[in-house]
Write a protein that binds this DNA or RNA. Structure first.
Lengths: 209, 209, 209, 209
DNA sequence: CATGAATGAGCCTTCATTCAT
DNA sequence: TATGAATGAAGGCTCATTCAT
């Protein structure tokens, strides 16, 4: 019955999916380390343990691989955040706090800072990636924060005159912290725990005061 | 009298200085539009209206031209800010307000957003440029803001428990606003005036509350 | 049985070896005709009937191709001479005569004069090639001649007071004959057969007298 | 009166001649050190202490400068040898000995080995330089040696069956010694005094035996 | 499906030569 | 006459993409 609507993947299709993911992961490492232009598909292939030509069986071009890399690495973070927010039962203050804490965790895990820096630097050269990135990640996150703020305003936790369209002001320090650690950690190391704490505290003061 | 010791530039030397600047400006445009790697020195030469080889009479390499571009476009902003702060006589609140307003002006002028995005994205692949950038721009600006905050704490304008080492939290929204306009202006235009106003207001609330 | 331990080259590997040799031969022709610096890898590729980039699948750089060219064209001559000398059973006089005759054959075959001239002219700018050339070719040949002379001294064929360290004096006319034909054949053609005969005769007189 | 036939150089013309020589000497150093292709006219100009464009006031091209360098550095040796031979009153044996000794002095002085190696390696790519070199240097020297040998045959000092057309056989070791010291001095140093002595001794034995 | 050899467009950099000053 | 800034053709090398095996 189910076979009629959903697709039961064959062993071969599973194989393909596994390999596809191997390539994406290898691409993630290389793109994050070298940047888009400097990354050689040769290196991606070596890291993935496959032949160079094989990449083209799974992706149309270097650029489309890049997009998949971005897609795959940003979706989980976004989805987890949305699910958590939907299920959360506590106050807006607590939800915002937790949301920001999760954002810090996500932004600083693995090679996320590199990916973020690369997106910031190169996305403008891939117009449809900018579309995608805005639609799926930026806009989504913005709406999430806006809904939290509105909830807080409704409950009286936050002042009612903060312009909710400017959520960038609230999130920006988290983004910058990732960039900072990537670029300047050796010049001036950042205590992320304390920084995040200060940031969240600052946001709450600003929203309540 | 002074002519004996100080250097009076000849016409030819003036010419060279002019041309050098022409190249830097052309490089700025191209680097900002294409990013470092994608920029062709051919295009820089065409834009500057000179032969390709001429670039090498003024710069050692593509990379050194890039550094000069960064230098030339960021120093004026930094210097103006420092001078202004040193001369300012009013309250810390006013100084911080004006400093941030100036920062917005600088970050959104001309092709500064592009340059900023490019630096964020590519600087990690040029270690000595990261050094230079941190030392000359980031660190300097950080110290300036710290001094303003300390002044405000001393005068009782600001609460005394804000950790001054985390000035990134205060500036970040301004940086992000530049990136935003570059990448997402078409998706969701930003009213910079209102945004800046909101940001500054938010910072002052956070520092005073 | 042996197939288990020794390597049986696949068809593809044989192909690669063939192509590698094609490139070396094309390089030999071009280097010999134009000299190292004046040789364009484009021309080598055209002569080899392949794409320019293909060269780099087989050699790291123009210089390393050059070294392979030298290697491939000088080793056979050297090895043949050594084997012959080791197996020879006659007098030192005969052995020296035959060795010199072979040397003339080798030095005047194909494009060897050009290669020789190029090595003489350019090797000083490639220190490690000078090392290689001295070790593998010059020194080897020198030792071979020395052993023949010592043998002749021992047998009483040659006078015992010729300083064996100066074998250059004995070989030099053969080298110069190759250079001569390359550079001055049109001005003053050289009857190599007679020249070689005279040279060998002269050497034997000098060693016996 | 003299002014009608011979030219009395003005001060300005002397100046030009001096500068011309300065350039040739600078060119000699650079060509000898770097080889023809690798030599940059920039470096020649710097070494000569003049502007780059000035070279073109005295020479048509890099190639013509090169020819002048060869010309200027080989003529004195040749002329001195000819004059000496013409004036010499002693035996053919002594004359040949002295001629060869002078040849060794000339070949090993200053940067002559480098120049020689460069000529050997590159002359084939400059057909008219080969003409010139053959006519002015090679042929001249050959004739000189031939005349000495003929004189020795006539006087009974040398055997009468040495083929005088093959003077290369006699001179070759001297040429090779210069090349050797240039290329292999560090691998196997050559005692030139002893080498020359052995060479001359060997030649005389060969001619007398 | 997988491979990796082959391709060739593309780009940074060099340098002989020219020419305005 | 002397200069050195300007030029642009040329060449070594890279790498995304293709395709025969």
């Amino acid at each position: 019955m189910q076979a009629l609507v959903s697709h039961v993947p064959s062993k071969r299709e599973l194989q393909k999916e596994v390999r596809r993911n191997t390539i994406i992961d290898a691409g993630f490492e290389e793109f994050a380390m070298q940047g888009f232009t400097a990354t050689k598909l040769d290196d991606v292939a070596i890291r993935a343990g496959i032949g160079k030509g094989t990449i083209y069986l799974y992706f149309d071009s270097k650029e489309s691989l890049f997009k998949e890399v971005v897609r795959k690495n940003l979706f989980p973070m976004r989805d987890a955040a949305q699910i958590h927010a939907a299920e959360f039962k506590g106050s807006a203050t607590d939800l915002l706090t937790i949301h920001f804490q999760r954002m810090y965790l996500g932004l600083h895990q693995d090679r996320m800072p590199q990916l973020l820096a690369m997106i910031m630097g190169e996305v403008s050269h891939f117009p449809d990636m900018a579309d995608f990135f805005f639609r799926e990640i930026v806009s989504t996150n913005q709406q999430l924060i806006q809904s939290i703020i509105r909830k807080g305003i409704a409950s009286g936790e936050f002042r009612d005159n903060f312009p909710v369209e400017f959520t960038q002001i609230l999130m920006a320090p988290a983004m910058i912290s990732a960039i900072w650690r990537l670029q300047f950690e050796s010049h001036s190391p950042l205590d992320i725990e304390a920084y995040a704490q200060t940031h969240i505290d600052f946001v709450l003061r600003g929203l309540k005061a």
